[in-house]
Amino acid sequence: MSTSSHSTPQPSITSPDASRELQTTERVAAFNVLAEAIALLSQKAGSPVTGSAVRLEMGRRTYGGFDPKRVGYKRFRDFLDEAEQQGYVEIDHDRPGDVGLSIPGASPEVGSTSRMRSDLWKAFSDWNPRTSRYYDLNEDRVVTLPTEPAPLEPTRYAELRTRISDSPSGFVEIKPVSRQQQLAWMMDFALRVTDPEVSRILSEALKSDHPARYFVVVLRNFPNLLNRWHNTLRERVYAEALRWRDSNARLAGIQVDHVDSPNHPQSSRLRDEAASPSGRRAVESPQRQVHDLDVVQFFANQMPGNVTQPRSPLRQRLHEAIERMPESELRKITIPVGYLFEE
């Protein structure tokens, strides 16, 4: 009797050593992608770049494949710390909010204002007309309160009003950069953008009912320009703070830059405040990213020679489907950027 032998497929088992070797190889590749992303963004922006911008660029360069957990890290920040120890990157640990990244040995940004105190930053950049701001010379810090008193307001506001009234020499008022001035800065920035189509879209956004909001919404679709705007805004607010300090002899010893002192707490939200003059920033979501593109297209359609056409049923269905799709599926969609500006 003959017996036929059958070879039974054996499961593929990856040894722990092989798994570690693969992870090490991918980790080195990730460090190299990190360095390339920083170099590219730094060259375009002309200044140190932020961690969030670099992570976005790494996602683009790896077609969405980069994930800190894949190479053994729980968080992107842990990945950056290891990359710094390995000499791939330098991290600006003193920068408030989102960390600044640069290639080791690269020249630091001349005149960098990323170390501006967060209390002064907010006092000068937030144009809310219902808020009054003073520098308390005795406590060496900014204090704020509603401009108009209200019945049953918190005790701390009433006490502060009394202190300012009784000892006016101990306080110096801070006039924030006005909404009109910041919008003028935005328009100046828009006109200096070298891409004529993007420049025109930004200019149209600034003519809307909510110019500051839509200006930032449009910029979110162009990370390099958004980073440049952040730098421009910081530089100009910093200059205003210096002028304020130099205009009053009582402020001669005031530190405008961040100093390591409990009296000068640093806000981890500074980067977000720079992104929006209102100081508020919504949570990123795939739907908002899609809506941001709608805003860009809307203002592109406002340009001379463009006529807004109603959506066809097919386009409407596609638009609704995109809004329901998870981010993982959105990443698979390929849309030539030229369609954003098609005449």
Rank of each mutant, 00 (worst) to 15 (best):
D119W: 06
K69F: 03
L226E: 04
P265T: 02
P265K: 04
Y73R: 04
G97H: 00
G111V: 05
Q302N: 07
Q10K: 14
H264S: 11
H319V: 15
I335S: 02
R133Y: 00
D78Y: 11
L191Y: 00
T113E: 09
L293P: 06
G46P: 08
R156I: 05
D292Y: 02
E240W: 03
M187T: 06
Q23S: 11
G253I: 13
S285F: 00
V283P: 08
A252Y: 15
R281G: 08
Y88D: 03
E173Y: 09
F341Y: 10
S114H: 12
E329N: 10
P48M: 11
F79V: 05
E82T: 13
T50V: 12
S132W: 14
A239L: 07
R243M: 06
R288L: 05
N263V: 14
A83S: 08
R245G: 10
E109W: 12
D94K: 09
G51N: 02
R179V: 06
N263R: 10
S268A: 00
E148G: 01
Y134N: 04
G72E: 14
Y63Q: 11
A53Q: 04
A321T: 12
A252S: 14
L41C: 06
E159N: 13
F31I: 11
V259H: 08
L22H: 14
E159C: 07
L80I: 11
V172D: 14
S169L: 10
E197S: 06
M116E: 11
E240F: 00
D126Q: 01
L183W: 03
Q287D: 07
L80R: 01
V216R: 06
R115Y: 12
D246V: 02
V143C: 05
R311M: 15
R315I: 15
E323Q: 12
L152R: 15
L120C: 08
A184E: 03
I322Q: 02
R70W: 12
A53T: 08
M186E: 00
G65N: 09
A37N: 03
N138Q: 15
E204S: 06
T25D: 12
T14E: 10
F299R: 04
R156G: 13
P154A: 09
V172M: 04
R60T: 14
E273S: 01
V218E: 05
L152N: 09
F31N: 13
L233P: 06
L293M: 10
I38Y: 02
I201V: 04
H291Q: 14
S7F: 00
G46Y: 13
A39M: 13
N306L: 01
R245A: 07
K175S: 04
V259D: 14
K207W: 02
L318C: 13
A83P: 02
P48G: 03
A300I: 11
E36M: 10
A35E: 09
A18V: 06
V54H: 00
E273Q: 09
D272N: 08
L233G: 03
A29G: 13
G59L: 14
A83E: 13
